[in-house]
Amino acid sequence: MILQQLINGLMLGATYSLVAIGYTLIFGVLGLLHFAHGEVLMAGAFMGLYIIMWSGLPLYITLPLAMVATGVLGIIIDVLAIRPLKKDFHLAPLLSTIGVTIILQNLAVKLFGGYGTRFPEAIETVNYKVGPLLISSANILILGVSLFLMVVLYFFIAKTKIGKAMRTVAESHTTAGLLGVNVDLIVLLTFGIASALAGTAGVMIGIVFHAITPFIGLTFALKGLVVMLIGGLGNVVGAMIGGLILGMAEVFSIVLLPTEINLQDIFSFGIMIIILIFKPTGLFGTRVTQG
């Protein structure tokens, strides 16, 4: 029973992690809270839905396609809504992303209607019985893909030249430029990667919940935000682990707490508050000296 919940928690947490990694990457390189990140996820879910419906191709082709499409959307957002703004007014980009939220959500309502849209059967759901455990193929897919993406991303950031350039930009745009890094290009790439991850999460949510609405962004954006705060701002590993912690905490809260009232969110935000009281920088955050 506990093991079963552990798997459910990991699965939920893995999608949170994907969302939170995007938040934390963008926060890292721009110091910007990307309010429209949840709507990017929603858009990714819808783009995935149509790619799957129209192409009829298997998921291992359609999921990467949806990732690329969502990545491109992220890049467009950077170019149109963030880059043209003067960096001197640090609230301006934040407000601009709120504008993007409104645009994307209303566009989705106009195109797909405000009610839920059925998500196509992207994969055949098979339930495997492993001893007392019931694991669905969807679970395996989500866990597998999320963990794979996280490991790849970790090594990308830690070891590759571009990954190092991203970390340099996160530390200082000026220093990065003086070392020969094309800062604008790295920011663009970061938006692409962050959005592609959110798109992946969107498609996965579609697969698990079987339906998506133009309003799913907010819930996951909030959870992603909580995870980023738990893990420490701008910390990718923190976002990965924070997501898994939150996912498991939520699943166990359903099991352990009375279900007549919805205590799940109280529980997850409560955890965030407790962590921030005792460690204001988040679990893996470090203090940044302003220089």
């Binding site: 190092k164 970390r167 340099t168 530390e171 200082s172 000026t174 220093t175 003086l178 470090t286 220089g291």
Partner: peptide, 11 residues
């Protein structure tokens, strides 16, 4: 070599 050295402290 910038003023304040511009070391990337988290690397």
């Amino acid at each position: 070599v910038p003023e304040g050295r511009g070391i990337i402290s988290r690397m």
